[in-house]
Nucleic acid binder design. Sequence first.
DNA 1: AAACGTCTCAACCGCGCGGAT
DNA 2: CATCCGCGCGGTTGAGACGTT
Length: 364
Amino acid sequence: MGRAPCCDKANVKKGPWSPEEDAKLKAYIEKHGTGGNWIALPQKIGLKRCGKSCRLRWLNYLRPNIKHGGFTEEEDNIICSLYISIGSRWSIIAAQLPGRTDNDIKNYWNTRLKKKLLGRRKQAQMNRISTTGQDKKDVANGADENALQNLSNSALERLQLHMQLQSLRKPFSFYNNPALWPNKLNPLQEKIIQQTLQNLNQSQNKTSLMQPGLGQNLELLKHSAISVRLQDQDLKNSDSSNIIALNPGNTHSDSTVAPKSNVIQQPDSISGCHHHSISTTFTQDEIDNFLNSKASSFLSSDDNNQMAEFDCLKEMDGSRDSLIWWSNEMDANSASSNSWDSASLLQQSEGLMYQEYAQLGYNM
DNA sequence: AAACGTCTCAACCGCGCGGAT
DNA sequence: CATCCGCGCGGTTGAGACGTT
């Protein structure tokens, strides 16, 4: 038995809102508020709209101080940092960006940011999976195909993003150390990790010949740190009510590479529902090296794939001046009060990440 | 200029959660 | 304790805008 519809679909108008409808809704809410009942609201003001539709229209468009488009570099940074850390929890991410709605951020991520980071690389990886012999066999068996479908895009993307950064920072990290892996990975998870590591090894061999400076870059990156800390007092899940930390960084610090960081701390000014405090720490060296040595990662054995894989990063690189990845504005105020023991951070972040994947049903 | 493809974003949909009864 | 119901969320859709051939 299905759920009862929230309103009488037959007598409800759908589609774009007219200026008159907007005016009615806005005038009423500004005068009376929502009355705590969206379902009853359209009847009160004579709108043939579903209550949910009214709510959405108000929250995403009519509400005061809404910003549309024109995302800043800092906003890009925040969105990406949080997406890697907590996934597609758009409402939480939106709570960190005054004037932005979850819908806006979701659209922005899906249409632009994601493509820059993952789109083409992912495609290349998928192509590779489907063309290698063993993979073909697996696909023929059907098992991995199903597993692939079951692995959500969000999880894949986050894993890829995380690994991408992680592998640059810590050659001997979690992903490079099977001893640290969970006892039981499903075949696809194992394959993705192995595939990525294989590519990494190849790329490091190749590029160390081509780019003598790269080793230094990697060394530099070993001293860098990312920490995204989220304290969500309202979240009830243990994984998010505690601190979600992503720290692919080192287990030691190096004073020669002073982290630049910025603490973004703001009470929720949008919905009043969430109260998050986030600190994000990156180093400019790390950012620059990540961008400059981007070709060191994920080099495929297939030259075409190589090129395709880095197109997304080329795009970023091409617009570095306008899109300063992991912004260098992330500065100063941060770390001490928000810095954590790096080793435990690493364990927590990786543990949390895998907890999350496990919770998604991947039988880890 | 037209046809076709791609992108963007407002809006819809269905589900889970939690408060009310 | 069970059920109902509204809210809020994330995923998806589709129309229009825009770009390319």
